[in-house]
């Protein structure tokens, strides 16, 4: 039976994963930097207050709230979007591994990787144990 595409070797997968991780971190850091500059320009002269824990407002706790805030260029929202991209980088790596193991016809590891991915997504979606 002719194959449509040749399975990837582990080395090729590792190369792609390496690039994916590097790109994710760089993009996230740039977004955080832009948000950080905005934040310091707008709020740099006020006093910091981290001694008493209050927790972040609801809009900085959820994916949709963060995206909304970032789109309206609220500085803390932009930073939080960068942090969200950073958290998403390992998740993207795991998601890619599902695909890579599938191309290698490695069923047990497709299953293993799907379990890890499900745990990660449930965490980001606010699920708790």
């Amino acid at each position: 039976m002719p194959q449509t595409h040749r399975p990837w070797t582990d080395e090729q997968v590792e190369q792609i994963v390496g690039n994916l991780l590097r790109t994710g971190v760089i993009v996230a850091a740039l977004v955080v930097l832009v948000g950080g500059v905005l934040y310091l320009v707008r709020h740099g002269a006020t006093s910091p207050d981290y001694q008493v824990f209050r927790g972040e407002p609801a809009d900085l706790r959820s994916v949709s709230g963060i995206v909304t805030d970032a789109l309206s260029l609220r500085s803390r929202g932009v930073i939080q979007l960068g942090l969200l991209l950073l958290i998403a980088t390992p998740v993207a790596r795991v998601a890619f591994s599902v695909f890579a193991f599938a191309r290698q016809h490695d069923r047990p590891y497709v299953l293993v990787t799907l379990i890890v991915l499900a745990l990660l997504i449930s965490s980001l979606a606010g699920g708790r144990l």
């Binding site: 910091p48 407002p57 706790r61 930073i79 942090l83 965490s123």
Partner: peptide, 12 residues
Amino acid sequence: GVYLNRGYIDPG
């Protein structure tokens, strides 16, 4: 993910 949802991650 859990920390973000709880409001433990402060952007500043």
